[in-house]
Design a protein around this nucleic acid. Sequence first.
DNA 1: CGCTATGTTGATTACTCTCAAAAGACGTGG
DNA 2: CCACGTCTTTTGAGAGTAATCAACATAGCG
Lengths: 231, 231
Amino acid sequence: MSENYTTQLLADFFRKGRSRQYNDGDLVYESSNPNPSVFYLESGYAKSYMITDEGNINVMSLYGPNYIFPLIPTFRSQLGRGSGGYHARGTIYYETISPSVIYSRSAKDLFTFSDRNHDVYKELSISLLNNSEIYLSRIGAMHYKLARDKLIYQLLLLANLFPSQTAQAKSPKVVIDIPLTHQDIGDILGLARETISREMEKLKKSGLISSDDSHHIVITDINELSDLLTN
Amino acid sequence: MSENYTTQLLADFFRKGRSRQYNDGDLVYESSNPNPSVFYLESGYAKSYMITDEGNINVMSLYGPNYIFPLIPTFRSQLGRGSGGYHARGTIYYETISPSVIYSRSAKDLFTFSDRNHDVYKELSISLLNNSEIYLSRIGAMHYKLARDKLIYQLLLLANLFPSQTAQAKSPKVVIDIPLTHQDIGDILGLARETISREMEKLKKSGLISSDDSHHIVITDINELSDLLTN
DNA sequence: CGCTATGTTGATTACTCTCAAAAGACGTGG
DNA sequence: CCACGTCTTTTGAGAGTAATCAACATAGCG
């Protein structure tokens, strides 16, 4: 875990583009924008979400340092029409959830760049592959019946994707670096905010998780937490 | 919808490989196999699934004609280590759900082939992209609270992905070609078999769906069904 | 120093799961 | 052609869990 994407060419490409500093909660992009752009998250965290017809928020993906977004619409516009699997209605919003530095380029520039260098294409595929794996992971949460298990599964996933850099290797203690509210976690798992609050409280009382001074979720022993799922 | 993947080179590559006829319910491959292979579904339908620690079945993906599987492990082995997002424990099984004709090649042959021809690489990316969109679609089901809405959402997805070829264009009536049992649908959505049975019965009584003579789900009016979700 | 976002807690409601039993569909072999 | 076993679907009743509604506490921010 915490391996970097091997996407150096892409990073260099984006760093030649426009950079902007964002605050927590800023809107970076929305899919209804007529000028398709691509973004590179230099530092910080972001989320993408849709608003459902009932007014609920459906968090689709999370992004951390070195992530590129949006990937699927960008690929789709370059590679042509697809299988029709993507049943999206409405706008997708991309929003920071911490102070962030983000580079942006036009989608067109990215295509021109990757046409000139096939290795860029490979790096884009790696990003897409990572994206796919994250989606597939999230589907796993669906198959747990109890809110408790869905939450534990999600915490393990977050510990895998966004561990704090300060953690020592092989330590069973993991600090989750991405700052998520109970509302966010509920919007990821399709559970109510109050349910997240209650289940987190139970996990805290069991000593499985805690909070550090800056509101990060701390997993006391990742193996112990993982064992809860397998039993 | 029902557009073909633009993956002609891959189709030709696989058709030079070994072909086999499978019956309904045959195991095609399992991820614990030490000789990584790749499969091309010439005709028929298949599913991939894991068995959870509680003994539940977690259906991960569905495959129809012209689909290639497994994609993520294949890409991963070619592109290198990833982001750690894929939280898979245990074996993934690939199993037919109808009589099928499937071509197979070794993963190694596929890599050699795609190294010689960069357009193959592009076709693989298209397949991976389609895969991603299907996963993303499935995450959408998670955010509906009621079993009824999850089921309707899934039916709309299936109608989009696997419509019967005999349907006329622009007709609101859609026949879902992939043969799924109530158990399968439950395993996709994380719902109990009995729940699927009950909710399907209600939809039938409302006249929204029916069955044809060969056990295919028939959506009477796809717009009407879709409207049920948006209200 | 208020305002808004976030987190906590309790009571009630409503839904799905589970368990159970049985009927229907289908293919196989006698 | 019928008997049989297996798989699938149907239906009912009871138990348990999460959603909702509501009220309040707390924190962060301008």
